Every structure is written in C-alpha cells, then in structure tokens.
Simulated assay, not measured.
Amino acid sequence: MIVAEGVTLALGQPPARVQILHGIDLSVATGDSVALLGPSGSGKSSLMAILAGLERPGNGAVGVAGLNFAALDEDALAVARRGRIGIVLQAFHLLPTMTALENVAVPLELAGVRDAFERAGAELRGVGLGHRLDHYPAQLSGGEQQRVAIARALAPRPALLFADEPTGNLDTATGAAIMDLLFARHRETGATLFVITHDPALAARCARVIELADGRIVADRRHA
C-alpha cells in the first residue's frame, strides 16, 4: 500500500533551514494497522503529510496504492487522494453551518458520488450517530464530532486511512471509545490504518509499531 524510499524534508531557508526528515525508508502492506510513535517534533505529522500526498518530499520516492506520487502534479495528486485516502485529524474540521449528514455527504457529492446522502447516512449509523443526522457540530459533543469526522473519512471507502492524533482533543474515556470505533471500522472495511501518536498504549493496539526520533526511524517491530 505504501512504499517510501530515501524520503527527506527540510523547511525554511538557509541559514535557518531545518531538516525534518532524514532518508526515511518504509513499506506498509495492504490491510495492515501501523502506529507511528514518537515525541512531539520527531517528524510524525510531516511524514504523514508526505505519505498522504499533502506535502512533497525534498528527495526520495513515494508510492501509494500503486501510484508514483512524485510523477503527479498538484491536480493529479488531488485526484489520486480522492477515494483512495481518508484522513482523521485531531481537529475535527467540520463545517459549522452543515448538519452531520451534510458534512459527510457534501464531499461525496462534490466527488460525483450519486448516492451521497444514502451512503453518508449509512456511515453515520455505522459510527453510532443515526440519531444525530440533522444536528449541527455545535450541538454535538467532542466525541460525536470526531465520529462524524471518521464517517466522513470512511464514506469514500478509501483503501488507506490516516489518523493523526485523533483523540488529542478528547477526554480519556471518549478517546478510548473513538479508538475502539476506529479499529472496528478498520477491521470491517479492510482499509490499511496508519495511526500517528505519541501514546505507547494506543500504539500497542496496532499490529506494527514504528518509532520516529529526530526525523529518523529508530525502531520497527510487529506484535505477535
């Protein structure tokens, strides 16, 4: 699903240029669950942005779902992400003037999905929000808003799902429930799950744990 070779990233201009990633080599199998673990500033979110086609590496090659991201321009990258890659972030990024149903359905409509509202409703029911379809984000709890964000990410039926600190804005109990849901949906859909976290307990729930420090992979282990 993911192949990265010699990926580097630097930000800023000399003499203040900062090297974020140093020659990352990584391969992730289809259907796997992977945790990217590391302290703040280790480069986790930067690596995710490159693997998701949101950021271009300084050097190196990135292939996702058989596509060579380096060979694609920005428009082609946007098309490549559509339907293939879902992203769940710490911030929910829901549109406040749209209901839960609209927040999930409208992106599908814009992507040309004919049964957008039917699919959106099914996804929201799948995350336990069938009774909240017509509620606006301000009327939902933080955990419910994150469930909407998960439904939105899963609705296009992506082959690859990224979750970047998805419970960072939630209390412990709600965060645990959200992760239970995310792993359940991963098992149900067969999507490759890539979770970015600094929490070892969360990382332990994944089949594979990759540790990043100072922009380098320092450990890569698979759970029994």
Rank of each mutant, 00 (worst) to 15 (best):
L37E: 06
R147V: 00
Q90T: 12
A65D: 08
G41W: 04
N169V: 05
A111W: 01
L129A: 12
G130T: 07
R56D: 05
G126M: 12
A149V: 09
A153C: 05
D134H: 14
F69C: 01
A138N: 08
G31R: 00
D180R: 15
L95A: 14
G215N: 07
H93I: 04
M48D: 07
A213F: 10
F183P: 04
G142W: 06
A224I: 05
V18P: 03
L133V: 07
P156K: 09
G63R: 02
L124C: 08
D75R: 15
V88L: 14
I50F: 04
A122K: 15
L108S: 06
T8F: 00
R119C: 00
L89E: 13
H198P: 07
E144A: 12
D75N: 15
D32I: 01
F162D: 02
V218H: 04
I2A: 04
I196C: 05
E118Q: 15
L95N: 06
R84A: 12
S45G: 12
G86W: 01
D25A: 10
R185D: 08
T189E: 02
G143T: 01
A204V: 03
Q139Y: 04
G215A: 07
M1G: 07
L94W: 12
G126A: 14
R187M: 05
L89H: 13
D75G: 15
G6I: 00
T197L: 03
N169W: 08
R152D: 09
G112R: 11
L129S: 11
S45K: 06
D32P: 10
G168L: 01
L212Q: 09
A91M: 13
R205N: 06
G43Q: 00
V209T: 07
V79S: 07
A138Y: 06
L36Y: 07
G126H: 09
T99A: 05
R187V: 05
Q139C: 11
N103M: 02
A91N: 11
M179G: 00
L51A: 10
M1P: 14
V195G: 03
E211I: 15
A151R: 06
H131R: 13
V218C: 02
A105F: 08
L9W: 13
A204W: 08
A204K: 02
I50R: 00
L11F: 05
D73E: 11
D32F: 04
A219H: 10
T167R: 03
A78N: 12
S46C: 09
A80M: 15
V218N: 00
F162R: 09
A151M: 10
D164L: 01
G128Q: 01
D214S: 07
L89C: 09
F162G: 12
I178Y: 01
T197D: 13
L160I: 10
I20T: 11
V113A: 03
D32C: 08
D134A: 08
V7K: 00
M1R: 09
S42M: 12
G130Y: 02
F92L: 08
V34D: 05
R187I: 01
S40M: 09
R81P: 05
H198S: 05
P107C: 06
T189P: 10
A35M: 10
E144I: 10
G121V: 11
I85F: 11
L47R: 10
A177M: 12
S33I: 11
H135G: 07
D220I: 06
A100Y: 02
G41C: 04
L202G: 05
D75I: 14
T197V: 00
